[in-house]
Simulated assay, not measured.
Amino acid sequence: MSDLATLAARFGEALRAQGLAVGADRSARFARAITLLSPTRPEELYWCALATLVSSPDQIATLTQVFITVFGEQQNLAYAAARAAPAAVGAPGPDTGAESSRREVGELASGVERLAAREFADLDAGELARLIELMRRFRLVTPMRRSRRKRPSASGRRVDLRETLRRARRSGGEPAALRRWVPREKPRKLVVLCDISGSMQAQARAMLQLLVCAAGGARAEVFTFATRLTRLTRALATDPVTALRRAGDQAPDWSGGTRIGETLREFLDVHGARGMARGAVVVIVSDGWETGDPAVLGAQMARLSRLAYRIVWVNPRTAKPGYRPLAGGMAAVWPYCDAVVSAHRLDAVDDLLAAVAG
């Protein structure tokens, strides 16, 4: 994100040097348009600039020339400028360029909204990146639990003897009032186990991106699995694009087979039973295709259910009408799940958020 801000600021400086009134607000809109559109071609980046950085038709030629100078690309830009100029000139009034910009931004936004209604499995990497801003509107919130810490409360059932005696010093050692307390509350831990096998690759990338964007204050521990278990908690502590790149680098079994039971056993033996899963909300993202013994998976789910506060299973296949948990893996895990949701596209994520919140 810092590189994007630098690019937008330097391009704005170049435009100001040629007489265009491009302030920090327009540069910020330019950077936001790039984030929404994720342009992969020079002309797409040019349209982001045109939609956010000009305010009148006579500025288009200057913008085009500076764009070519800064980014070193001429192919297709002359055609793009020719398309832009008539549209801007044809509208009446002195604010024609501003209206054109608002129209372009509206079209970009509506395109992103349309992506929210498409299944994650049908989106390529660029389209998925365009959903980042929408994903940031969500918040993964886990239920609250009592902590060992306390806070003062007049309605508390327990007396805080230390605070009562400390205050009694002001009244000659006689306690004028009893000080009471109640336990503080904190959100439960969130643990995510994400299947990155071949049948779940697109869904896994979408779920990891959503987690980076929407985790908020939730303390999320993240693991991926296919043929092995990989902890990605630290790798995801960054912006969504970098997080997905790091996930791809650190998890070598992307698009491999699936051994859910064995990897779940490893998680419980190494992490879960030692406290990570205890009282936590555990989200498992998988279509349930198990290449190992379903009985092993069922036994490990039984172990997990005794530790976790809540188990949420995310399976995009459940969105299909008439779905039944007939596959060995899903049949084995179904009795131990508190909720099963599809979350197969962005406008279906609300069910996941509600299930996590309990």
Rank of each mutant, 00 (worst) to 15 (best):
T6Q: 07
A8R: 09
E13A: 13
L15H: 02
R16M: 10
R16F: 01
R16I: 13
V22D: 08
R26N: 06
L36N: 15
T40P: 00
P42D: 09
L53R: 02
V54C: 14
V54N: 06
S55M: 12
S55N: 12
S56E: 09
S56K: 08
D58V: 06
Q59F: 09
I60E: 13
A61V: 03
F67W: 00
V70P: 00
E73T: 15
N76F: 09
Y79V: 08
Y79H: 11
Y79K: 15
A80K: 03
R83Y: 06
A84V: 01
V89P: 09
V89Q: 14
G90E: 00
P94Q: 07
D95Q: 09
G97S: 12
R103P: 03
A109P: 07
R114A: 15
L115M: 15
E127W: 05
L131Y: 10
P143M: 01
A154T: 02
G156T: 06
V159D: 11
V159E: 12
T164K: 12
G173P: 13
G173R: 10
E174H: 11
P175S: 02
P175Q: 00
W181L: 07
R188G: 08
R188M: 05
K189R: 09
V192Q: 06
L193W: 06
C194D: 13
I196H: 14
S199N: 05
M200F: 04
A204C: 08
A204L: 03
L208G: 12
L210F: 14
V212Q: 07
A215D: 13
A220R: 04
A220D: 09
E221M: 04
A226W: 00
T227E: 15
R231K: 03
L232F: 07
L232Q: 10
A235I: 06
A247K: 05
T258R: 10
E262F: 01
T263S: 03
T263A: 01
T263Y: 02
F267S: 15
L268A: 04
L268R: 03
G272S: 14
A273E: 15
A273Y: 00
A273R: 02
M276A: 12
V283G: 09
V285Y: 00
D293Q: 05
D293Y: 07
G298P: 12
M301W: 02
S305V: 11
Y309N: 15
I311G: 11
W313G: 14
V314F: 07
P316G: 06
P316S: 08
P316V: 12
R317A: 12
T318Y: 00
T318I: 03
A319P: 05
K320I: 09
P321W: 03
P325V: 11
A332W: 02
C337W: 03
L346E: 09
D347P: 04
V349M: 13
V356N: 03
A357S: 08
A357L: 15
